[in-house]
Design a protein around this nucleic acid. Structure first.
Lengths: 207, 207
DNA sequence: ATTTAATTAGAGTATTTACTCTATTTTTTA
DNA sequence: TAAAAAATAGAGTAAATACTCTAATTAAAT
């Protein structure tokens, strides 16, 4: 589990140049030479730091996982409210914007690189378990009223919408901005709506 | 709006070879020469029928749109039941399997080819209107009890889940088979559950 | 039957691109 | 400070690939 330390200045430059170009033009349209050029280094130097293009993409995934962990490790111990959840969903969507090429091309990338697939699937499983835990907390705190048997399907629905809201906007040709992100969060909450008491819902509207 | 007539035998061969290879390896990894070879023709011949690779992909989209139209134009006039909807969702998912590369790479493909983007966004808009109409019918028939104001968000949720269920399975490393498809349909129905009367729900379980 | 048009084959090319190799500079270590 | 190691530059290469061009064949039209 090697993360990018602050000593690897060049490595960071490469990764961020790659993220920028990948987001703008897609992984297929961006050559390693172009990444090197964007990072202000030579192609040879790029290959000193990374074995190949796939290696760069894998490192970006690790970077993304790192940021994602920061997001979900914080709400440990304390009791979360529904408006906390709104914040988490928003941060999650903002991460999707930062690494949008990854979300766009995920399946293709995983098919090309089985190692990437392995890593991502493992993380995905972990994520799901963590989110289930948070959901459970909501139920226990009385914010959500639903049977144990309904939890997984509700969580899965929220998960799918949360992770595909930006794609939906993009495919539909809609703007991605603060208001459209809020709309996505509202969509997820509207699915939970039948399981939230009117009182709690009123509080939520205000936040 | 040029469709593939039965006279264009070669064109059809090329398109189906392309679909097969694209589904297996992704558009990026499949060269035009390989498509020609798979179709059993020469590269020159391929370029006689198609201007370039993008042209092939656009033709595949048209083919897909044609099949999709067949799916949704039939339920016109008669009053649909919820179990009819189950069938439509299933057929829709089966189309996603047939053209899976398209669903996987949609955003990337649209970014590379603005013309493809234009066509797809136009169709997407139409599709949404049609599905809204069907939804409306369900409400009017008394199968669904929901306010006009909730309709769009519920429809959007169903849309997103329906169009991303296979991706979800694939990303999670789960098998795509009859039972997992049924699970996806069940997921969509579970979102509608709070708006369906117990009686209707009972009928649905049976079908 | 003959001309014209449509279709196909297949060799060929210009370009792109992932990646290598070596020489040079910078940094670290002893 | 000298030697060793790490980092960087930049030219270069082999392979892939999208697409072209011409010649040959088949089908259609008159």
């Amino acid at each position: 589990m090697r993360t990018i330390s602050s000593k690897n200045a060049t490595k960071i430059k490469i990764i961020y140049a790659a993220i920028k170009l990948f987001n703008e033009h897609g992984t297929g349209a961006v050559s390693t030479n172009r990444i090197a050029s964007e990072a202000g280094i030579s192609p040879g130097n790029l290959y000193y730091h990374f074995k190949n293009k796939e290696d760069i993409i894998r490192s970006i995934l690790q970077e993304m996982i790192g940021e994602w962990d920061k997001l979900w490790l914080t709400p440990k111990g304390w009791e979360p409210t529904l408006s906390d959840m709104k914040k988490i969903i928003r941060l999650n969507i903002e991460l999707q914007i930062k690494y949008c090429f990854f979300y766009r091309e995920l399946i293709s990338l995983m098919r090309i690189d089985p190692e990437l697939q392995r890593i991502h699937q493992q993380i995905q499983k972990q994520r799901f378990i963590e989110q289930r835990r948070v959901f459970q907390q909501f139920v226990e705190a009385g914010h959500l009223r639903l049977a144990e048997s309904d939890m997984d399907s509700l969580l899965t629905s929220c998960w799918i919408i949360s992770n595909n809201w930006l794609s939906f906007l993009e495919i539909s040709g809609l703007e991605i901005d603060d208001s459209s992100i809020s709309k996505g969060i509202g969509l997820i909450l509207s699915i939970l709506r039948p399981y939230i008491s009117s009182f709690e819902w009123g509080l939520l509207e205000g936040s």
